[in-house]
Design a binder for these strands. Structure first.
Length: 265
DNA sequence: ATACCGACCTGTCAGC
DNA sequence: TGCTGACAGGTCGGTA
């Protein structure tokens, strides 16, 4: 599900809701494929610790737990973090419940179980660079010379972190570059347009609260509305907003990929 | 180094 | 109504 703007929106909500609260107890469900750390380790790091901060690293949500360590949540495609009153009925596919001192619960729900939960006793750091913090030269240096299709490079979290399928397609449209174009064949000028496009699309999406494509909601249960501003993503066959050509869909790196065959070269 | 594919999972929707 | 197949915001590991 969520890419950088959705995760950023969720984190902002969590900061308001849970920072300063304390985790009293933790319940973990039967399905263990979500867990990247052993269940008992997750429980031991989380229980009795105070949430001193929540931050985003790429698509990871990081709960800072004072001296105890950090709890790292990756939402995969369908993961959600919900804040609920104790009495509220459990959603199907609830895999973890952290009971807070405020008598609320922080619940992890994930139907497809492609998300990942882990803890560290130190400080978590994701690979790759934050697109909103990186400069043009470094951005250019990351991609220049790679023979891979530019969209694959954008999706590679070891280079840039936080860009996923929606924002890769949207940024490439804005930059006028075909997704399959090899990074090594993109000019410096085009890179600079792509750099601006990535940042612009991410900033606009954050401002819109993310894209709610199927069931994404933020920490307060509200939908984002950036999906209304998608120019190519899931608009297969619809007219391009610029030139009216039908938007094409192909499969690239196993992902549905949308572009305007006329505007993108 | 890179690319392609399947695996990991469930849910939804279109088409027959 | 019910079945099947395609597809979905992500990532990893194997193989060529």
């Amino acid at each position: 599900m969520p890419e950088l703007p959705e995760v950023e929106t969720i984190v902002r909500g969590l900061v308001k809701q849970v920072v300063g609260d304390r985790i009293e107890s933790v319940w973990i469900g039967e399905k263990k494929n979500l867990l990247k750390s052993p269940a008992r380790e997750i429980v031991s790091v989380l229980e009795h610790s105070v949430i001193t901060g929540v931050r985003r690293e790429g698509k990871h949500i990081v709960f800072e737990l004072g001296g105890a360590g950090e709890w790292i949540v990756h939402l995969g495609m369908t993961g959600r973090l919900l804040i609920a009153l104790k009495r509220t009925a459990l959603a199907r596919h609830t895999h973890l419940i952290a009971t807070l001192r405020s008598r609320r619960e922080l619940r992890y729900v994930d139907p497809r179980r492609l998300g990942r939960l882990s803890v560290t006793r130190s400080v978590f750091a994701a690979e790759g660079f934050e697109p909103l913090e990186i400069g043009l030269d470094l951005f250019h240096g990351l991609f220049r010379g790679r023979r891979t299709p530019v969209k694959s490079a954008l999706l590679n979290q070891k280079l840039l972190r936080g860009v996923g399928n929606i924002y890769a397609d949207e940024a490439l449209f804005r930059a006028g570059i075909r997704p399959r174009r090899r990074a090594s064949r993109i000019t410096r000028d085009q890179f600079s347009r792509l750099y601006e496009a990535v940042r612009e699309v991410l900033r606009e999406a954050i401002e819109a609260g993310g894209s709610s494509v199927s069931n994404y909601v933020n920490a307060d249960g509200e939908e984002g509305f950036f999906q209304l501003r998608h120019r190519v993503y899931q608009r297969t066959g619809d007219p391009c907003f610029v030139c009216k050509s039908p938007i094409k869909r192909v499969v690239l790196v196993g992902r549905g990929t949308h572009y305007c065959p006329n505007c993108q070269k």
